[in-house]
Design a protein around this nucleic acid. Sequence first.
DNA 1: ACACATACCGCAATCGATTGCAATGACAAG
DNA 2: CTTGTCATTGCAATCGATTGCGGTATGTGT
Lengths: 337, 337
Amino acid sequence: MTDRPRIRNIADLAKIAGVSPGTVSRALSGAGLISQKTRDRIQALAREHEFRPNIMARNLRIQRTGAIGVLIPLGHETGQHISDPFFITMLGLLADALTERGYDLMLSRVIPTDDDWLERYADSGRVDGIIVIGQSDQSAVLDRAAARYRPLVVWGGHSRGQVHCSVGSDNVAGGDIATTHLIERGCKRITFFGDPTPLEIAQRLEGCRQALARAGLADALTVFPAHLAAGLNDSDITAYLEHAETRPDGIFAASDVIAMSALRALSELGMAVPGEVKVIGYDGLALGEHTVPRLSTVRQDLTTGAHNLVDLLLRRIAGEDTSSVVMMPELVVRLSS
Amino acid sequence: MTDRPRIRNIADLAKIAGVSPGTVSRALSGAGLISQKTRDRIQALAREHEFRPNIMARNLRIQRTGAIGVLIPLGHETGQHISDPFFITMLGLLADALTERGYDLMLSRVIPTDDDWLERYADSGRVDGIIVIGQSDQSAVLDRAAARYRPLVVWGGHSRGQVHCSVGSDNVAGGDIATTHLIERGCKRITFFGDPTPLEIAQRLEGCRQALARAGLADALTVFPAHLAAGLNDSDITAYLEHAETRPDGIFAASDVIAMSALRALSELGMAVPGEVKVIGYDGLALGEHTVPRLSTVRQDLTTGAHNLVDLLLRRIAGEDTSSVVMMPELVVRLSS
DNA sequence: ACACATACCGCAATCGATTGCAATGACAAG
DNA sequence: CTTGTCATTGCAATCGATTGCGGTATGTGT
């Protein structure tokens, strides 16, 4: 074999090819003026020696990394895990969307301790742009970072006056849709399951109130601040349903995960769904298709959501200015309501 | 403000600090001989100007990236999505484990078209090490890459003679445990739900056969090659159960996701679980706690699995030689069996 | 006051690929 | 045979941080 001396960089390859490093670079990177003959020759040589140019060096020179950071701030609830079905679904979709566009995905879970975690990450030069999943309770941080760092988009609720560019569904409308559906099904005593600390949940609750008010049922609402995290809820929810003074005949869960917990609690208490209690979730996750009974829900189209996030981000990276996108959620009636 | 000229590198900062770039580097990176006084002064200056050293340049010089690549090959089944609950759970746990050890996680979905995707990725210099989740049908590729590229570990089944370092549960034992449990519960007609193309599934089926043989029920087994992907199964499974010549009284599903589909199909067909049919899954995912009835399963401890993966990988990065780890799975009896 | 050790700091090479500009060569027209 | 043109290729600076080595200032002991 002639590849005794391992080829470790473009200069080595240039030496055995009898050309300059610059020529090798042009031959391998595809672009640039170079004769077809030498290009073919050098590419063949590179293949033969299993040589691939070092990406880090390229990144440094080129000033781009080809990677997008996906950050998941877990501010309001430390119990909420990165393996939460919602995050995870979104993550998978983002991975697919970014791969299609030729970007890698750099995942970081963030537990905000200080208030410049986002700016630190942005300045580290590790990524070309950042997608944050969920505002959690970090809106201020997001706004401050967005003012200075352009390639940043956020999945979550949209509020008037926010500085950062966000993609999300209209949570108020979604809350309204869900509640209206329960009302149409004849529910008179509705309980909202969810802790309204994060913006999106608060908006869903607002939509819920709005629908009830319109129907003249303003005081038919109870709010039970269930955790977002799967698993933390189960005993709480069971206890709540068991001891509630007036049992609800309709449950609007702020997420599908919470709805699943509710379904199981109801089943254990022997309360028929949808006979005695009707249940509707929020998100439209795949797991809702597998519950018994199948879960009615308000679907946010996460697939186009992910595509929107990526699309806006890449346009921002290209220097464009983009405004937020609010998508319309959609009622999915299955068997739980 | 004095920060008119934006500080973009340590040379700029060195200039306004009146020292050399090298000194700034030493001051910021913590290590190196430097007086406490200048260190404090320079760090203060850096903070004041919101300067953070460029990671790419550092990576190039240091020859490490601080990132680990997590690859998910989707070889045997294109329908299987990255948002599959199992992948996603593993991904979340890996993200946590890697974060703890100070590494970032670079996610890539891989649809193997050629047979050097792994080596290409390894040589790109983008990451310090690679974790592959699931062998899929790529064992040959894994072995070839492992022979040359040290920092590589794989989640999945272990087979004699494999070259790559793997972490996983003993699938044969797991299959045995599940089947033995069904037998003890009195099942006489057992159906295995799962396509045994991937190594791990084949091993679970083998364990199943082994347990049946031991109990003298060798011909009590039917195999229905259900897809691994959630959602693709539902109509197939319903159709199968409806028309099967002899209805099973015990179902061993090769994954919890398949088991969920089976549970729902059974519920739709009005077959009582666990009364008429007993069901057991495999994996021990959180979603099994939310089904109705709660799903019995064979748990692989994914948390320690993820920690093992990270641990072995970091030791390999450090130059150590490590051998594969096979963890013992554990029976979790809930209400479906 | 002198020799010597010590602690800091600066210099400059280095990591590996990219790219503007200059230089070389080939080839055609005059 | 000379000059002009164009296509290729080489040269060297550059991206930004790190680090071994050598130099300078400071401090100690006599």
